[in-house]
């Protein structure tokens, strides 16, 4: 196309006005979580210098992995402007299913459970997108449905897993003594991180999360991207459920239920906007570490674990209060 002569002013003006990649607010959202994490680690190490020894660092990382995998999936849904409240319930259901299926299917039980949970995510995504029901409601309903299924198929009991089919999810690799779970978590981070970094998916998620009508009219595959986010969220929840069974040698219908609040807390504390359109994998990793270190720190400080939920609840509200971009919202409801 032959369009328009070039003009000398723009280049010159652009040279004059050098511009940072991120706005000041976004920069703050990037620095703050890291600073919080560093302060937390610092504070705990002062209280208990043993905290910085490799063994305890590995233990902390190891314990963060189920939360990490749950949060990464749920973050995708939040990034495109929705929310997936069903992840913890889905992980519980996965724990029951994997415990039931391992005796017959061995390792294939893991694959099957992840697929089943991906399917659960697909169903939620399709209901949300096609029937135009807010994701908050679809997944709140889903939460009840998956919990119910877990109760029914388990007979409301804890199901033990014998044998070492799932041992690979919770073992120490010889030599460096690295927990296998940490490597698995790192692999999930790497896969999701690369997809987000290299492909247009991240851009689509952000466009949808920031302005869905505009994304639609720009030809962004809105329905596919959103449903895809729910599928990955479901699959991650299923895999997180498997990881939990590996550590307890049992599946239970409420095994992961208490993780819902920490998942949301980790995502928003990491700097991902609860309103969508801003966030990512790296932020979520930081957020998960903050939540995990905080839990460890509270126990180091001798706080009764019963109080931990109170902290998480307050933390979610505080993090959203600090990070929400009110200029984007007409009203807060």
């Amino acid at each position: 196309m032959s369009v328009v002569d070039k003009v000398e002013t723009t280049t010159e003006q652009r040279e004059k006005l050098r511009m940072p990649r991120m706005s000041r607010r976004q920069l703050l959202l990037t620095i703050m979580p890291v600073a919080v994490l560093v302060c937390l680690v610092g504070a705990i190490s002062i209280a208990n210098p043993n905290f910085l020894r490799p063994a305890s660092i590995w233990t902390v990382l190891d314990s963060s992995v189920p939360l990490l995998i749950l949060a990464l999936g749920a973050m995708l849904v939040i990034l495109c402007g929705g929310i997936d409240l069903s992840v913890a319930a889905l992980a519980s259901m996965a724990s029951v299913l994997v415990a039931l299926w391992v005796p017959a299917l061995e390792g294939w039980a893991v694959v099957l459970v992840v697929l089943v949970c991906a399917l659960a995510g697909l169903i939620q995504g399709v209901v949300h997108v096609v029937a135009q029901i807010p994701s908050f409601l679809v997944t709140l309903g889903g939460l009840a449905v998956w919990s119910g299924i877990a109760l029914v198929v388990s007979g409301a009991a804890t199901i033990g897993v014998s044998g070492d089919t799932l041992a690979w999810t919770f073992t120490r690799l010889t030599g460096w003594n690295i927990p296998s779970a940490v490597l698995i978590g790192a692999a999930v981070v790497a896969v999701l991180g690369l997809v987000m970094l290299l492909t247009p998916v991240r851009r689509w998620l952000i466009a949808i999360g920031s302005n869905e009508p505009a994304a639609l009219l720009a030809g962004v595959p809105v329905a596919r991207t959103k449903i895809g986010a729910f599928i990955v969220s479901g699959a991650c929840a299923g895999f997180a459920g498997v990881m939990l069974v590996g550590r307890t040698y049992s599946g239970a219908p409420t095994l992961a239920d208490s993780l819902l609040l920490p998942v949301v807390a980790a995502i928003v504390v990491g700097g991902t906007a609860i309103t969508g359109g801003f966030g990512g994998v790296g932020r979520t990793v930081i957020g998960v570490l903050i939540i995990t270190v905080l839990r460890v720190g509270l126990s180091v400080a001798g706080v009764d674990p019963s109080y931990v939920q109170i902290f998480y609840g307050a933390l979610v509200i505080a993090a959203v209060a600090l990070t929400i971009d009110r200029s984007k919202l007409l009203f807060v409801k």
Binding site: I206, A207, S210, N211, A214, A218
Partner: peptide, 13 residues
């Protein structure tokens, strides 16, 4: 409202 994603960059838009 519909024509652009304001938070995304000029290039991305």
């Amino acid at each position: 409202r519909e024509g652009m994603v304001g938070t995304m960059s000029v290039a991305e838009n």
